[in-house]
Design a protein around this nucleic acid. Sequence first.
DNA 1: ACTAGGGGCATCAGTGACTGAGATCCGGCA
DNA 2: TGCCGGATCTCAGTCACTGATGCCCCTAGT
Lengths: 416, 416
Amino acid sequence: MTEIRQPTPRRGTNLPRMGDFNLTVILEAIRRSSGGLSRVELAQIVGLSPQTISNISRRLLDQQLIVEAGKEGSGPGKPRTILRLNPAGMYAVGVHLDPAVITFVVLDLLGDVVKHSRMATPGGDPAGVITGIAEQIQALIEESGVDASKIAGLGVAVPGPIDLDEGSVVEPPLLTRWNRVRIREALADATGLETLVDKDVTSAAVAETWAGGASGAGSFVFMYMGTGIGCGIVLNDEVVRGTSGNAGEIGHIVVDPEGPQCDCGLRGCVKSSCIPQVLVAEAEAAGVLDGNRHGADGPEVQERYAELCDRADAGDERAIAILDKSATLVARAVSVVTNTLDVERVVFGGPFWGRMSPYFLDRVPGLLDRNNAARMIHGLEVVGTGVGEDVGAIGAACLVLEHMLAPRAQRLLLEG
Amino acid sequence: MTEIRQPTPRRGTNLPRMGDFNLTVILEAIRRSSGGLSRVELAQIVGLSPQTISNISRRLLDQQLIVEAGKEGSGPGKPRTILRLNPAGMYAVGVHLDPAVITFVVLDLLGDVVKHSRMATPGGDPAGVITGIAEQIQALIEESGVDASKIAGLGVAVPGPIDLDEGSVVEPPLLTRWNRVRIREALADATGLETLVDKDVTSAAVAETWAGGASGAGSFVFMYMGTGIGCGIVLNDEVVRGTSGNAGEIGHIVVDPEGPQCDCGLRGCVKSSCIPQVLVAEAEAAGVLDGNRHGADGPEVQERYAELCDRADAGDERAIAILDKSATLVARAVSVVTNTLDVERVVFGGPFWGRMSPYFLDRVPGLLDRNNAARMIHGLEVVGTGVGEDVGAIGAACLVLEHMLAPRAQRLLLEG
DNA sequence: ACTAGGGGCATCAGTGACTGAGATCCGGCA
DNA sequence: TGCCGGATCTCAGTCACTGATGCCCCTAGT
C-alpha cells in the first residue's frame, strides 16, 4: 500500500502534481471555513485567480467532494454561490486497536461519525484477532449503508512502537504476542481496502487537524491521555511522524524528582508517576479508593480512575490532591515538549480526558505559561479536544482522508 | 525583509513557483553529491525528464550557480558532462552574536569559509554594538575580495529567546540591555544587505544541512554545546523554527533527580546541572581545578573548561568523572528529544564540543541506544559536526543560502 | 414593472514549465 | 575511417494558471 514516509533525496514536481495540490488546498480552505466559502473568497484566501478557482471547483463538483449550497447575497450584484463539503463525497473506515478495546468508526468527509462500534480486545492469536477485525469492518460498512465505492480506505491506529515502513506493530507493552505483526498487509488483504497504519497518538493528532475545528490548525501538540500518555505533534499543519513513525514517545520525561523509581533507572518519569494506573494505585494506597483490586487491565483501570474522579468531584480533598498533582506533573512534561518545539497550542484528549479535564484545565494553562520559554513573545493556548473519546479510531479514519485530501507538501513531489 | 515563517492558511501554487522549486531541487541534488552530477544522473535522482534538467541546468549556468566541470566517459557513447556548484556563484555573510564573542564569516556557495574574524562582545549600548558590527561586516567584505554583487545577504545568529516576526532579540539571559532590540531591521539598514535573524542553535542546525555533508541530511537534532545547551531540529531536510523561532529550548529538561535546585523549582535541569559553567564550578569545589576564580563570563568559562579537559586528558580520575557524568546527563536530555521526534541522527557541535567530544562520543551512543524508544526499529546515529567551532556564524550565513536556494516546500506557496 | 448598476462567474486566448520524439553531438572501437 | 551507443539538444505538444472580456443574476431606484 502507499507509503506515508517522505523519500529522500527530494524529488522535483510537475504540472499534474501542482494541479492536484491546488485542489487539496482549495478543499482544505473550504473544510476549515465554518459555513462554506464562495469562489471569490477562495481566490482571496488561497491566492489563485478566480478562473483557476472555478476550474478546480468544477473538478471538485464532478468528483462530488463539494456541493453548491445556496447563495449569499448582500447588496447589489449576483449573490455568491457557497461551496460546501459534501459529507457523502468520501468515507473512511477507522480502527483503533487498543490493549483493552477495539473501536471501529465510519467517517464521512466532514469528519463526522456515521457509524461506530466497539469490542473488547480478544487475547488470542493476532492472526485470529485480525480476521475478527476484518469481519467487524465489513459488518460495520454494511450497517452504515454508505456507498461502498465511496470508501477511500482503512486507517488503523495502534499503540507504539510501530514500524511505519513495514506497517507493523512492534512489541507494544500491553499487547504481548503482537510482536512484528504486519497488520497493514494483513488487513489490506482481508478487507480489500487501501490501508494505512499509524500510532494512536499520531492518529489522534490527525483527527484534531481534520475534525477538530480551529484547534486543529497551525502547530500544536496533542496530549493523548490513555492507558499511557503520549503525544502527537503537528507543525505548520503537517503531522510529524518521525523516521519510523514513532514520534511522540514522552513516557520517560522526568517530571517528579521525588517520584517513584522507573524501569529506566531514573525517578519520576511520566509513565511511572502520572499515568492513570499509577494514580489509581496511589489512591488505593492512600485509602481514597477502597479495596486493593489489582486488576491492571484497561477497562478495570478506567473504571477505578472514574471512581477516583467521582470522589474528587464530590469534594474528597485527597482525591482532588491526587488529580491536581497529576495535572502538575503532566504540565511539566508538556512544557518540555512545547519548549522544544515552540508550538502555539496544546490539545488534550483521549479516553481518560473527559473525567480529568476540569482538574487539568484549571491548573495546566498557568503552569505551562510559567514554564514557557517564549513567554515574552507569545502565549500558549490550552484546550480540550472536541473530537471525543473515540479520537483514536476517528483519527485512524482521518489518516485516510488526510492521505487523500490534505495539502501536504509531499503531495507535490514525484514518486520514486 | 523577507519573512521566514509560514503563512496560514496554506496558499496555492503556480507555474513560476514550480519552476523555481525544481531549480532548487536540482541545485540541492548537485550540492549533496560528492563530486558533481551529470544531467542524466540528475534526471534519475529528481525524477524530472532529461529535457527539463537541461533547461534548468542552462538557467543555473546562466546564473553562474553551477559550472560544467569536465567529462566522465566510460565505455562507448558521449561522455557525461559533470555539473558542479560554482563556489563563486553566491556568497553570504554570517554573524554570530554570542554573549562572549562576535564571530563574522563570509561563506561561498559550497559553504566554505572565505574569510572570518572575531571580536569580543562589547558591553555597551546595543545601538553602538550594532554599528560596530556593521562596520566590521563592511571591512570583512572588502578584505575578502569577493564580488559584492554576489553577496546574497546577511544572516545573524543570536541567543534566544527571539521574536522571528520582529527580527528581534528578547531578553537573552547573558546579554542584558539587549531586550527587544530589532537587530534585523538595524543591520539591514546599516549594511544595505537583505538580513535574516535566527536563533544560534537553529542556525547551527542549518549549517549542518548546508555545510555538514552526509550528516546534514534527513531528520536530526543538532546539540549545540555552548555557554548554554540548546538544540536545533531538522525534520525531513527542513529546519523546525516553531511559532516564534524559539524551538530547541531544552534547558529545563530534568536529567538528574539528585541534581542541584534550579530556578524553575525542580532539581537537576540541564541548565543547572550540565552546562560548562556548572561543571567548572563543580570541578573547583572538588579541588580538581585550583583557585576559586569566579569569573563567570564566557571566555573565562571556556578557558577553565579547557583546563578541566586538560586534566581529564592527562588522566585525572576526578576530572574524567565530571566529564563522564556530564555526558550521561546530556544523553538523558537528548533521549527526551529524540524519543519525542524519532529522528535518525544526533549531531553534536558548538564552541565547547571540540574538547568534550572524546568523552561524549565514548558514552553517549550507548546511552541513547539504551533509551531509544524505537530501538527495535532503527538505530540512532551519533556524530560530531564537521563544521567546526564557528558553526554559529557559518550557520547564520547558511540561513541566507538556505533561504535563497533550499528546496523548502514553503517556496512553492504563493505569498500573502 | 422596468431599467440601471454591480458583483459573481464562465469563456477564450495567452504564457510558461514539463514531456516525448527525433536530431545532433561526441567519444570508443573495429 | 566508419559504425555504434549514450548524452544532450531541438521542436512541437500538453496542460495548469492568468488576464481580458462578457454573460448572468440580483438589488435598488424610478
